[in-house]
Simulated scan of single mutants.
Amino acid sequence: MLATAVCGVLITGCGSGNGGGNHDAKANAKPAAEPKPLTAGALRPLLLSQADLGTGYVQVPEKSDSGKFDDVSVQGCSALDKLDQNGDGIAFAAKAETSFTYGTDATLSEELHSDRPSVLSSKLRALFHAYISCPKYTMTAGTTPITVKVAKSATPKLGDEQFAYTSTMELPSGAQVLKTMAVRRGNVAVMLVGAPALVDRHMTTAFDKLPSAS
Rank of each mutant, 00 (worst) to 15 (best):
A93L: 10
S153L: 02
V150G: 02
F100W: 12
T205I: 05
Q162H: 13
R125N: 10
L2K: 02
A175S: 09
T98N: 15
G142P: 09
G15M: 07
D71G: 05
G194H: 04
Y165F: 15
L43A: 00
T204G: 07
H113K: 04
K95P: 00
G17R: 14
G174M: 08
E62S: 15
P117K: 03
K136S: 15
N187D: 06
P156M: 06
S214R: 12
G103R: 10
N86M: 08
S49V: 07
V60A: 10
L112V: 06
A3D: 11
A42W: 01
V9P: 08
Q75D: 10
L53K: 12
G17P: 05
G8T: 13
S212E: 12
L48P: 03
P145H: 14
R116W: 13
A42S: 04
G87Q: 12
C77L: 07
V58N: 12
L108R: 04
C77F: 14
A130R: 08
K95Y: 02
A154G: 14
T204Y: 15
A164Q: 12
L198N: 04
T143N: 08
Y165L: 12
S173C: 07
S122L: 11
T39W: 11
C134K: 12
L10M: 08
V60C: 11
R201K: 15
M139L: 13
L80Y: 06
G13S: 04
A126I: 15
L112M: 07
A32S: 11
L192W: 06
A96I: 00
D70V: 05
I146P: 00
A40P: 03
L178M: 13
Y165I: 08
G17M: 12
Y57S: 13
V177M: 14
F69I: 05
A151P: 00
A151L: 03
L80H: 02
